[in-house]
Write a protein that binds this DNA or RNA. Structure first.
Length: 556
RNA sequence: GGUCCCAUGGUCAAGAGGUUAAGACGAGACCCUCUCAAGGUCUAAUCUCGGGUUCGAUUCCCGAUGGGAUCACCA
């Protein structure tokens, strides 16, 4: 007769510690009442996903506002999918968004008394708990091969039964201890399964901080908790880690709702109190092919990777701000009332969260991004652009370096005034906007046909430009400058007074708008630009004349 | 397909058994104006459908439809 204990000893001969020892090693946290312990638990399988940023941002917020703890745990139990270095990468990107852990995995090191915070280093802990389950007869080794499991699945599908390893289909469940003992002795490969007592026909009530209370079928699957590679599966690691790390609130993606019954049963079998759960909606996007909503996909959507926003020169805070509007429906009004400042004072609450996945709205992100960028003064915005460019945009960096003061002046156009321009939402496209200030961008514009108004003959254009070149001075004062231009215009037959022009357009060559447009196109190559007085001032008289000459010769 | 969740303008959404059904982004118009941006004023645009309960339903209930999530020795 082989007892559970003997079987457990055979499987884990070196495990001597007990669950009680673990309880002692990881005592309840000493925190003020109401403090929440949250965690972000990524797998090191790639770069930070926008949805993960969303989740971790909320974890950070919930812990902070309750004076609790937010920690990071690396879930690296899937050795096949692991990408080297991505754990560090994740951490670095979180840091860019100011989502920093209080404890846990920190790359090369870790901090806190509830570690290790990397699952692959916790094998001994999982084994202690599994051994305990084995001894209690709540888990058992399973020797089924993947082929056998596939066959089983195929058969179940044929019979339209729920697929999986449960009830009568859980063959290894019925093996006697002697048989199990024998197989293990013979070196047969095995996994360890949790023995479920659940009934798929009955329902359990679960409570979710976002979704409220709802019913869901009990788990009846004998899920794998210990893989043949000696590492635990997610479900088991979740129960063990979040128990011993004393997590109070598990905040994770909606994709986990379906496995909640497993987790509930696991916690109950272990005799532990389950944490609170908050399952967050997924951020979506309309699929161009099907027209349906779908999860933001790293492969298809650039905005699924936070690196996209970083590399395109968005202020990290603007993404966070936008994400917060998805997180809490009352945030947007709040932040508007607070003039886009003091986000950390906003009180997040789960019941202000919609449990439907929102469509990612680039337009709204851009709105926040512009509002944020407009707050910086000349030196700050230049500094920001410079440090972005240095790391992510060499072309912009060279442009800035060629004449930093000039770049600063350009960025400062109509900036330090009551109603500043809001030209930029990110630094990735500033060169598209201000390129004409530079020789390269200007030359590029000259390659295209210049968009002069067709009502003017070439001779008119040359005449106007010649007069401007002769008489118009650079001036910082917009009024003086514009009066000068008016005078020139009047002498050429352009109406200085628009009402007069409108009353009798035939009497004039055009109005001041027409004349200004001729100059504008000449200096910038385009019909839209910041006010011409400033453009001319920044370009300088010499460059202005050079450009006028260039266009005149182009016209001839 | 089974199970769970969800359904208000283009998007994010507030809302209550009786409302002129908020607000924000976006769009359009006008004003300002050397163009653009900004700013100001204004406009258009929403309760998926069918039953039931009720004096009255967009709101509560049921069903349909649609959408989302999930069904691994992945997390």
């Amino acid at each position: 007769m082989v007892t559970n204990k003997q079987l457990a000893d055979l499987i884990f001969p070196n495990v001597t510690e007990t669950v009680a020892d673990l309880e002692k090693r990881y005592p309840p946290r000493d925190l003020p009442s109401g403090a929440e312990v949250t965690r972000f638990a990524p797998s090191p399988t790639g770069f930070l996903h926008t949805g993960s940023l969303f989740t971790s941002m909320i974890c950070r917020k919930v812990a902070s506002q309750s004076k609790g703890v937010f920690y990071i745990r690396l879930e690296d139990t899937d050795t096949k999918r692991e990408i080297a270095g991505s754990g560090e990468q994740l951490l670095k990107q979180l840091n860019i968004f100011d989502v920093n852990p209080d404890e846990g995995y920190l790359g090369n090191s870790e901090k806190g008394n509830y570690g290790p915070y990397v699952q692959s280093k916790r094998a001994d802990i999982y084994c202690i708990v599994i051994k305990h389950l084995l001894e209690e007869g709540k888990a058992y080794p399973c020797f089924c091969t993947s082929e056998q499991l596939e066959e089983l699945r195929a058969e179940q599908e044929k019979q339209k039964l729920n697929p999986g390893y449960y009830g009568e289909f859980a063959k290894c469940r019925n093996l006697t201890n002697e048989e199990k003992y024998e197989k293990i002795k013979n070196g047969e490969k095995f996994v360890i399964r949790f023995k479920s007592n659940g009934n798929h026909e009955s329902k359990i009530k679960v409570t979710d901080l976002v979704r409220g209370e709802f019913e869901i079928a009990e788990n009846d699957q004998d899920i794998v908790i210990y893989k043949s590679d000696g590492l635990p599966t997610y479900h088991f690691a979740h129960a063990v880690d979040d128990h011993f790390m004393r997590t109070t609130t598990v905040i994770r993606g909606e994709e986990w709702v379906a496995s909640l019954p497993i987790h509930v049963e696991l916690f109950a079998a272990l005799g532990w109190k389950a944490p609170h759960y908050a399952h967050l909606p997924v951020i979506m996007k309309i699929d161009e092919e099907t027209g349906n909503k779908r999860k933001l996909s790293k492969r298809k959507d650039q905005e699924a990777a936070v690196s996209y926003f970083i590399e395109d020169g968005y202020l990290p805070k603007s993404l966070i701000m936008y994400l917060m509007t998805i997180a809490n429906s009352n945030f947007e009004e709040w932040i508007l009332n607070n003039k886009f400042e003091g986000m950390e004072d906003f009180v997040f609450s789960f019941n202000k969260m919609n449990n439907e996945g929102a469509l990612f709205d680039m337009g709204k992100l851009n709105f926040f991004a512009r509002e944020l960028l407009v707050k910086y003064n000349k030196e700050e915005i230049t500094q920001l652009a410079e440090s972005y460019a240095k790391e992510y945009n060499q072309k912009l960096y060279k442009t800035i370096q060629s004449n930093r003061a000039y770049f600063a002046d350009i960025m400062n156009i109509d900036r330090e005034k009551a109603n500043p321009r809001k030209d930029y939402e990110k630094f990735g496209n500033v060169l598209d906007i201000i390129g004409f200030f530079y020789e390269e961008g200007y030359q590029k514009a000259l390659q295209e046909p210049l968009p002069f108004n067709e009502k003017f003959a070439k001779e008119d254009l040359v005449e106007a430009l010649t007069a401007i070149k002769e008489k118009l001075q650079v001036n910082q004062d917009e009024q003086i400058w514009f009066n000068d231009l008016k005078e020139i215009g009047a002498s050429l037959g352009y109406a200085a007074n628009n009402k007069e022009y409108k009353a009798n357009p035939e009497a004039f060559k055009g109005n001041m708008g027409d004349l200004a447009e001729i100059l504008r196109i000449t200096l910038t190559g385009r019909k839209n630009a910041p006010n011409l007085c400033t453009v001319m001032y920044l370009l300088g008289l010499e460059e202005t004349h050079r450009r006028i000459d260039a266009v005149i010769s182009l016209l001839k």
